[in-house]
């Protein structure tokens, strides 16, 4: 009887610890990806059979059905270029030279990986690959500005479709905090 109880307790504890560890591991989110440049983080293994189980699981949780690196590059940031957490109450400029890709876009997401509600549906800015990257992001709705929510951190995703192989090694946009 005591042995049976000990085994049941071991099962309960083992399952709880295992599930807790999985949740904590997947919570690492985009921070777990291997390629970093300034505030930007990405992976070469999105959608790939070469991805580890953990990478595949994190992508499934944070960005299900991401394309492979030859079709699209996804750059994700949770901080500005100075390393400060992106704050929905502050105003930012995301700017840089044209990216070697067919088309780019800058989109703001909440930390739940969903678009941030706003009446004007101002979720993103984008442009042709020949255009320099430029997006203004902040809590005030303005012409050609992406809207965030005061009091909440947010994340940025830059998408580059049809990228050249060396895109991540070249100059990437700066995330500059303009005001809070």
């Amino acid at each position: 009887m005591r042995l049976a109880l000990r085994i049941v307790l071991a099962l309960i504890l083992g399952i709880a610890i295992g599930l807790g560890a999985a949740w904590w591991s997947l919570r690492a989110g985009i921070g777990a990806f291997e390629m970093r440049s300034g505030p930007w983080v990405t992976s070469q293994n999105f959608g790939s059979v070469d991805a580890t189980d953990r990478e595949r699981a994190i992508v499934a949780v944070r960005g299900l059905m991401a394309l492979t690196a030859s079709e699209a590059i996804y750059l994700n940031a949770t901080t500005d270029s100075e390393g400060r957490v992106l704050d929905g109450g502050c105003r930012y400029r995301i700017a840089g030279p044209p990216l070697p890709a067919r088309w780019w876009s800058v989109t703001a997401y909440g930390t739940d990986s969903h678009l941030i509600p706003n009446p004007g549906h101002a979720y993103s800015m984008g442009g042709d690959g020949a255009d320099p990257v430029l997006a203004i992001v902040g809590p005030q709705a303005g012409a050609n500005e992406v809207v965030t929510r005061s009091g909440e951190p947010f994340e940025l995703t830059v998408r580059a479709y049809g990228p050249d192989a060396g895109l991540f090694d070249g100059p990437l946009p700066e995330i500059e905090r303009l005001s809070c």
């Binding site: 083992g14 610890i17 295992g18 560890a21 999985a22 997947l26 699981a57 949780v61």
Partner: peptide, 13 residues
């Protein structure tokens, strides 16, 4: 048990 559950949960996600 914890390790088995961890790898199973991650793989099945």
């Amino acid at each position: 048990i914890a390790m088995f559950v961890y790898w199973g949960a991650v793989a099945m996600t």
